[in-house]
Nucleic acid binder design. Structure first.
Length: 294
DNA sequence: CACTTGACCTGTCCGC
DNA sequence: TGCGGACAGGTCAAGT
């Protein structure tokens, strides 16, 4: 499930690989994934050059030279994979089977062709992801983008902001607060659990029970975890791959996520899976004790 | 009005 | 082996 670090990794990969390329065709294999009409695609997409790539929260923004932007949301299982013309040798290393050989496959939803013969595949097993073509100037007015809170790694995300959100949602479990994209943008289930473990906070702690020291610890933990994951190229759980189709390796060093039954690296206690705000949640019960009192 | 549930989907895993 | 059901989780819409 791509969250901020995964989308950031994809963005960095695409940036130096497809900027400058010209889109020569786009094939939509599943209409709901990219519902722009054939006419719109023909008029606003084909023949355009890719000018720059950005990321906002979990959104990937591909800016074209005609004042339009392709917005991608990968949701749970979306993948963006580039196959160069001489695909087998891409990256100069060993070909991996996800790299080229079998694309398109049954989860390919959209194919973008470039004039140099390379192709960008949007694969999405569960069809929750989507692509939209919008005017670049309208991106910030997009209903989803409008609601997004600050980027957690930017200066706009401060302890005070986090504290204010916690106060505003005092009855909600802290995990629910940090998953709320209007509080801070880009955190999903994995990094919520990872951050809370690093900060030694039980995910079910109500906002009202959060002590100032915990808020600070959580703030620092979120930033540290995200930075570390970006450094390692994101997490790989079944679906996430970078633009080469290669998996990230963050999960190999996940602290708690999907580690039920394993030992906590901090205290040696046994990691368990629980349910918080309706989501599967991993904690070390010894490190992350639930405090109900203020 | 705050909170919960359902919808969107497909693949995987578990129990019978 | 096969089948039904639960589960996975980002976001929005609908319901309580």
């Amino acid at each position: 499930m791509p969250e901020l670090p995964e989308v950031e990794t994809i963005k960095r990969g695409l940036e130096h690989l497809i900027v400058g390329k010209t889109i020569s065709n786009a094939k939509v294999l599943w209409v709901k994934t990219f519902s722009s009409s054939k006419n719109t695609i023909k008029q606003q997409l084909i023949g355009c050059r890719i000018q720059s790539i950005e990321r906002r929260a979990k959104l990937l923004l591909v800016n074209l030279d005609n004042q339009y932007t392709l917005m991608f949301h990968l949701k749970l299982t979306g993948q963006v994979i580039l196959v160069l013309k001489n695909q087998q040798r891409l990256g100069g290393g060993h070909p991996t089977k996800s790299m080229a050989a079998n694309l398109p496959d049954k989860s390919t939803r959209v194919i973008f062709n470039f004039s140099d013969g390379s192709k960008l595949y949007f694969n999405d097993q569960r069809k929750f992801g989507w692509i939209k073509l919008v005017k670049t100037s309208e991106v910030t007015n997009d209903p989803l983008v409008c609601r997004l809170g600050p980027e957690p790694l930017s200066k706009d995300f401060t302890i005070d902001r986090l504290q204010a959100a916690i106060k505003r949602h005092s009855k909600l479990a802290i995990k629910g607060i940090i998953l709320d994209q209007s509080t801070l943008s880009g955190i999903g289930n994995i990094y919520a659990d990872e951050s809370l473990h690093l900060a030694k906070i039980h995910p079910g702690t109500k906002g009202a029970a959060m002590k100032p020291g915990q808020v600070k610890a959580l703030y620092k933990a979120i930033r540290q975890i995200l930075q570390s994951s970006i450094k390692h190229g994101g997490t790989s759980i079944t679906h996430y791959v970078n633009v080469f189709g290669k998996k990230g390796d963050y999960l190999e060093r996940a602290r708690v996520f999907r580690q039920a039954g394993e030992s906590c690296r901090v205290c040696g206690g046994k990691i368990i899976k629980i349910r918080v705000v309706g989501r599967g949640t991993y904690i070390c019960p010894k490190c992350q004790k639930l405090s109900r009192n203020k």
